[in-house]
Computed example of a mutant assay.
Amino acid sequence: MQDIEQKTPLANNHISVDCVVIGFDGEQLKVLLIKRVGEEKGEIFHDMKLPGSLIYMDEDLDEAAKRVLNELTGLKNVNLMQFKAFGSKNRTKDPKDIHWLERAMQSRVERIVTIAYLSLVKIDRALSRNLDDFEAYWVALQDIKALAFDHNLIIKEALVYIRQYVEINPSALFDLLPRKFTASQLRTLYELIYSKPIDVRNFHKKIAMMEYVVPMEEKQQGVAHRAARYYRFDKKIYNKVRR
């Protein structure tokens, strides 16, 4: 019987995918980043980057994004939407980035166009359970330093896209929140998304106008301050109102 040779899929050296996974922990917006280890001028360096890589010649973009995110972070069953392509000739101007990528892919790399994907998630223990195994970390937006390639720009553009997207699809915000949430958590999220403070009283009026944000009988327990009421997002009411 003839042996079947296992071949490594061929990478497309000009197209990559990058995944911007943005989460909310109730207080801060965070981005999922992975650690990168490389060598420059004989010295080892450590920095961070978005989960991303070159695509294979035999896979489409959506498949590539899911594969890359899973391989680099362990995350699966995460909704990813394509939001922008980045193709500046300066994306690969830093020799450190190219040297690292060529060693990682064992192939010559020149100019690369990347297709950026976005996912909005709520940060919980289930989602973050295995991240340490992949050296993947949630980093608060304000704590993100210089990243590989043009990944700082990609994150910046992702935030612009989110602001535009939630104007048309407000339900996307609730993907970042737990099943039950307080008005304070929702207001904090709005403030972070739009980068501006929101008056508490006006925001409570805004919530009252959102038929799909339903107050619950349940309140917070074991808190030092006055217990706040919980709310929930009702998808059925949302679809009816938005129809």
Score class of each variant (00 low, 15 high):
67 R>K: 01
156 K>H: 14
32 L>R: 01
105 M>P: 02
109 V>H: 03
21 V>Q: 06
26 G>Y: 07
70 N>H: 12
125 R>I: 09
81 M>F: 05
222 G>K: 10
128 S>H: 03
66 K>S: 08
73 T>R: 07
44 I>N: 02
203 F>E: 10
67 R>L: 05
176 L>E: 10
24 F>I: 03
66 K>D: 00
37 V>R: 04
112 I>W: 09
74 G>Y: 10
47 D>K: 00
226 R>T: 12
80 L>I: 05
63 E>L: 06
95 P>D: 00
72 L>C: 06
184 S>D: 12
162 I>C: 10
234 D>E: 13
148 A>H: 02
174 F>S: 13
39 E>I: 15
200 V>E: 13
230 Y>M: 09
202 N>C: 12
115 I>K: 13
77 N>T: 09
94 D>A: 02
231 Y>K: 10
223 V>S: 10
115 I>H: 15
92 T>P: 00
167 E>F: 11
101 L>R: 04
125 R>P: 02
231 Y>F: 15
76 K>V: 01
217 E>C: 01
200 V>S: 10
38 G>E: 01
175 D>L: 15
82 Q>V: 04
120 L>S: 13
26 G>Q: 04
56 Y>F: 14
177 L>Y: 11
116 A>D: 12
209 M>D: 13
37 V>W: 03
123 I>T: 08
21 V>R: 06
55 I>K: 01
178 P>V: 12
27 E>I: 07
83 F>W: 09
117 Y>A: 08
99 H>P: 01
209 M>C: 10
115 I>F: 12
126 A>R: 11
85 A>D: 14
48 M>D: 04
188 T>R: 15
53 S>I: 00
189 L>M: 11
85 A>F: 07
206 K>W: 14
114 T>V: 13
240 K>L: 14
32 L>H: 05
79 N>D: 09
127 L>H: 11
210 M>N: 01
106 Q>K: 15
186 L>A: 12
63 E>C: 06
48 M>S: 02
5 E>A: 10
143 D>F: 05
166 V>A: 08
102 E>N: 01
117 Y>E: 10
97 D>A: 02
147 L>P: 04
46 H>K: 06
58 D>F: 05
118 L>F: 14
76 K>A: 03
108 R>V: 14
142 Q>K: 05
228 A>W: 11
214 V>F: 04
67 R>G: 00
84 K>P: 03
104 A>N: 05
3 D>N: 06
101 L>H: 00
34 I>D: 04
52 G>N: 05
133 D>N: 14
160 V>L: 11
140 A>W: 03
25 D>S: 05
31 V>A: 00
218 E>D: 09
91 R>I: 03
95 P>S: 04
140 A>N: 12
18 D>G: 15
173 L>C: 14
165 Y>Q: 11
164 Q>T: 07
237 I>E: 10
86 F>P: 06
150 D>T: 05
141 L>T: 06
138 W>M: 00
127 L>D: 02
22 I>M: 14
133 D>L: 15
58 D>Q: 01
34 I>M: 01
114 T>G: 12
2 Q>A: 03
135 E>M: 07
131 L>S: 06
192 L>S: 09
73 T>H: 00
83 F>P: 10
168 I>R: 14
148 A>K: 03
60 D>Y: 05
223 V>M: 11
225 H>I: 12
38 G>M: 03
238 Y>P: 11
76 K>Y: 11
16 S>C: 06
61 L>V: 06
133 D>W: 09
182 T>K: 09
44 I>G: 00
41 K>W: 01
186 L>K: 11
